[in-house]
Structure formats: structure tokens, C-alpha cells
């Protein structure tokens, strides 16, 4: 069902136009990559502070109240440009092993953000200034750094078609994980 919806999506005129345009797609892709510096960069700055690895004399709440809006703005650009890139070639991404890894890691990052802001961040007053933040905050920082790094790496590797469905034969696991529709081997 998802596959047929994405097939339809990929055949809409705007999707084809974006896919076939020489410059628009490249401009959107460039915005997606360059905004990494703002989004992951400022998110990593908060993570480094949560680890107590730098700027410990700056209250942690300074980062979550004054720097985080910039991280959120960066994320909005990432979602918008990423959404457009997906819209240009939906099937290619849907059946890409690296894209699927990226989506899984995005879920890990999202749960981590939800848990940090729902639980750990509520007690920030007690560890706001000086020293090393509590274990829960440090774990949140490590999960964030690892998941976003993985997302960046997987995102870059989406461009390589090593495990593409139209390049067969692939190991059965790859076909299963990528959601490839492979005709059964003829007897």
C-alpha cells in the first residue's frame, strides 16, 4: 500500500519536475547539506555542554533556551528540504537500505529528545550551573551525538546504490531490509 502510494506520488507532475530539474534539485540538496552545520552543529554544542566537556560555566539552560531555537530553525529547514528531496524520487528512498537506517535512527533521536525534554530537562535547576550534569543528561547527549552522526553518515550513503533493488542479485537479507520486490528465481 505504501509502495503504490509512493509510486503515485513519484508520478505527480511536481515530483517529476523536481526530479528532472537540473538546478532546483541541486539547490535543495545543497541547502539540506549546508544546514547540517547549523542544525547538527548547534545540537552538538548542547550535547557537549550536557556532557560537561566544555562551557561548564555557562548555565545549561542558556543552551536550551537561547541556542535551541536556532537548532529548531535548522531542523525546520532540514525537514523541508529533506521532504522535497524525498518527494522528487520517493521510491528510490523508500527502497534504499541506507534511507531506512536513517529513518530508524531518526526515531531513536526523536525518542531521545522526547525523553530528555519530558523528564531530564525538568530538573535542570538542580544541575544548571557548574560541574558535570547528571548521568541522565550525559546519556541523552551521547545518544544524541551517536544517532545524529549515524543519520549524517547514512544520509550521505543514500547516494550510493550498492544495495539498490534494481541491481540484482542481492543477498536475501538486503532485499528484505530494503523492501525490494524481487520475482522468484525461475526454476
Amino acid at each position: 500500500m505504501i509502495l503504490s502510494f509512493l509510486q503515485w506520488l513519484g508520478e505527480t507532475p511536481w515530483s517529476i519536475a523536481l526530479h528532472e530539474s537540473q538546478y532546483v534539485w541541486s539547490v535543495v540538496e545543497t541547502a539540506h547539506v549546508v544546514t547540517l552545520a547549523l542544525f547538527v552543529g548547534t545540537a552538538a554544542a548542547l550535547d557537549v555542554r550536557l556532557l560537561g566537556a566544555a562551557m561548564v560555566q555557562v548555565p545549561a539552560s542558556e543552551f536550551t533556551s537561547r541556542l535551541l531555537p536556532w537548532t529548531r530553525a535548522g531542523f525546520a529547514v532540514m525537514v523541508l528540504t529533506g521532504g522535497l528531496l524525498f518527494y522528487a524520487t520517493p521510491i528510490t528512498y523508500y527502497q534504499s537500505l541506507f534511507f531506512r537506517v536513517k529513518v530508524l535512527l531518526l526515531c531513536v533521536a526523536a525518542v531521545n529528545i522526547w525523553y530528555f525534554h519530558g523528564r531530564t530537562h525538568r530538573g535542570i535547576a538542580s544541575w544548571n550551573v557548574g560541574g558535570r550534569p547528571p548521568r541522565a543528561a550525559r546519556i541523552a547527549a551521547i545518544v544524541s551525538l551517536v544517532s545524529w552522526s549515524g543519520i549524517v553518515v547514512a544520509g550521505r550513503l543514500v547516494a550510493y546504490n550498492w544495495f539498490a533493488c534494481d541491481i540484482q542479485p542481492q543477498p536475501a537479507f538486503v532485499n528484505w531490509a530494503s523492501g525490494c520486490v524481487v520475482p522468484p528465481p525461475s526454476p
Partner: peptide, 14 residues
Amino acid sequence: HLLALCAIGGALIT
């Protein structure tokens, strides 16, 4: 190279 871009981004943009 992209991960290093993120590191530079954080240190520079902040």
C-alpha cells in the same frame, strides 16, 4: 568530511 562540517558548524555558528 560531513561530520567535521557539523563540528565546525557548531563551534563557528555559536
